[in-house]
Design a protein around this nucleic acid. Sequence first.
RNA 1: GGGCGCUUAGCUCAGCUUGGUUAGAGCACCUGCCUUACAAGCAGGGGGUCGCAGGUUCGAGUCCUGCAGCGCCCA
Length: 915
Amino acid sequence: MTQELAPRLDPKAIEGPRYAAWQEGGYFGVSPTAVTEDGREPYVIVIPPPNVTAALHMGHGLNNTVQDVLIRWRRMQGRATLWVPGTDHAGIATQNVVERQLAAAGCHRDDLGREKFVERVWDFVGKTGGTILEQLKAIGASCDWDRTRFTLDEELARAVREVFVSLYERELIYRGEYIINWCPRCLTALSNEEAEGHETAGHLWHLRYPLAESAYEGAAAAAAAGAEAIGQLPDGRWYLTVSTTRPETMLGDTGVAVYPGDDRYKPLVGADVYVPLTGRTIPIVADRHVDPEFGSGMVKVTPAHDKNDFEIAGRTGLELLDVMTPEAAMNDAVPEAFRGLDRFEARKAVLKALEDEGLLAGTEDHTHSVPHCYRCDTIVEPRLSEQWFVRMKPLAEPALAASKDGTINFTPPHWKKVYEHWMENIQDWCISRQLWWGHRIPVWYCPCGEIIVDREDPTACPSCGSGELKQDEDVLDTWFSSQLWPFSVFGWPEQTDDLAAFYPGHTLVTAPEILFFWVARMIMMGYEFQGEAPFTEVYLHGTVRDIQGRKMSKSLGNGIDPLGVVEAYGADAMRFTIISQCAIGTDISLDHEDVESSFANGRNFANKIWNAGRFALMSIGDDPVQPVDALRDSLLAEDRWILSRLARAAEESTSQLERFRLHEVAEGLYHFFWDEICAWYLELVKGRLGPDADPASREAARSTLVAVLDGAFRLLHPIVPFVTAELWSKLPWPEGSERPEDLIIAPWPSDLDGWIDEGAEADLGAFQNLVVEVRRLRKEYGIGEGQRIGIHLTGGSNGFIEAMQAQGPALEQLARVNALEPSAGSGVGGNAILSNGAELFIPLEGVIDLEQERTRLRGEIDKVAGVLTGAQKRLQNEKFVSNAPAEVVAKARENAAQLEQQKAKLEEKLAGLGE
RNA sequence: GGGCGCUUAGCUCAGCUUGGUUAGAGCACCUGCCUUACAAGCAGGGGGUCGCAGGUUCGAGUCCUGCAGCGCCCA
């Protein structure tokens, strides 16, 4: 199997073919019988379906890499592992894209009509809709592509229909006229979650409303009682003052409200007020919603254009007066001068007119949260409208309980509180959208007034028999279908084998932004329709940001194209870089202006793996390799050491993966591979792999190397699947054992405790200590790396010197030491004390300046002395000795003793150098 | 207004759940090496009063309280 491998990893040469081979091998898919018949434990993730029109961005890169790491790990653990891919029809977003295309061609959706327009969207989706899924393949996502779903598929439409009808039958869906969030550009209702509040610098205007003459007496009394909102105009009319951030809505005012217990205004409750500019009069009412402490304690009430005002009207019987068109222009209910004006034009006009009449009391700057459409960023207008709603409180109960009792876990844990807070204060969900692209609301209206909601399309009215039925024009909120994703993808409402095998799933991986949009609703629907939660672990990863901390986005132009990264550095490089930054609860930050340095770490590591593998494969050669267990007795200390380190790396990786601590997995394996395998083990065995080496030692090294690389590739595979699989496939295989078909299904390393070897770890630690000290002294005295030196070594633990002598070739390789004398040595030279107390002396007659060595030693002594003083102080503290655990005290004593010895020996060395 | 989080090296961040070696990493920086696996590399090095002020404790980057600055979510 010896073959020439390129000295540099060429990701393009290996990634495409590897991925194709995995697909052909069918490793991504799993049959339900693996669970229902073979009894394997399932592990299921459903993908957060990206918008069907989306192009892959770094956020997807992060989200899907995390999922793939978990999926690949669980697959290797032998679970019946399934990752279901798919896309979301994304109602508003997709419709907007196609409308923009139409607009570019000078056309509007109304020109086409509903049917043609929807056809056109399907056409668009059919042509470009699969793009993002193809892109996921480039980053290595091991989804079961045969199960790809789309939220608008016929099969999923059946689930939507069943859920709607079922909830309607139980009165959990209802229709009603309420204030909803309305986007005047998209011309549709939005849910509360879809109306995003942005802090906006605006104004608070104070308006004067003249009182009816009959109220003057009360006004005078109120003014006398200290009501600051009441005053008299120069012409003697009494007025009251109200404040608003949206003056144009005053045209729709139908009342003024005060707090019922507010004594200042008591005489005025029931009195009439003129709405300026309109000639209308409206009553003053009392309502508990008004905060007497806020502003003047009097508020204008615009029931058709404000949610709170709508509620006040409901309690007090005030009229509803809608003064805007769907496009948020003023309608015919307002005075002629304002008709047809856009809301912001109307605002200016109203203010001007009020000022002219002396009714504008003042203006102040005011920063407040203004709701914007989450799709087009237009300012949302609260609007009175008839819509369909889901009654959320009953649905939320089990979903809230699941968090409280720990059935569902959140990582990081603080999201638990956020989730529960939202669930406890949940509001009804407006689900109808005035769009054409989406699941049509399955409701028909008969001219006789009958409303038909059924699982099958009705042909005639069950009440009057009329065939003149008209289906509701609206579609459902996109999230209404995506909330069913964890079971709709398995064919529910049919009781399919897939559903039996793969519901519920296990882990949900997503960004916190859609905790309420999606995660919470999936949990509610899971309980409502399957009787249990759709997953038990919710892992919320961070956001991808640029180095200024701004979220990466198309509009800011600060994005990085994951495919560009894959193209330039490979999928492994991208995956490793992302995962190594993926600490719990933190965002990922990448520099879009220096993509190379952002991904250098991952690229370099992938290349390092490649090169280590390349070297090992060349060194091991083609001869048969024995299983390492068969050679246990001939293993040398470094063999036992690296196997021990492998066992610890496996244990550590597993426990960190279980806790979603992905960055620690990446970091731990990075150091295991780079520092321990490459920097130490490979260097140590180089001499043992050559043709002149002792055969037993050579076989031990070859077997160990195969075992260690096999284990390391398995551990690294979930994070960097391509380079590991490529090298693993070329690795010689120990005789007598069966080789798994592919690394992707090779068993995850576990139960390696038998390889843990504390003695070997201590021995290698001492060896490393020696090498590092020699290197430091060499550097200190400028002894070039080409020059070999002899060293003197005495003391240390039992057998230490002999062990180091046995490492002759390794010492030469690693520290350029060609002779080791087991004596103290004498004369001019460099000195060091190892942590095991051994004394190192490097004769450097004529090379070094005595004074330089004295200064250096004094520095060393000072350093050790500083630490020693701290340690001694602690031990002298009686309270420490008596209160701290015995173990801690013993350790401190040991440590202090060691430091003391080190310091004494250094001082001795210094003294030996004379003045 | 309510809730949540963050502040550790020049930069980006780990470490805090469960307090106990001389606080770590990557990138950047400085010095020396093209040593036949790897210059996308190797060897060595500099750099931190862990936001501030208190408290608990034998012991605090870690736990508690307050403050300051920054950010997110909900209203």
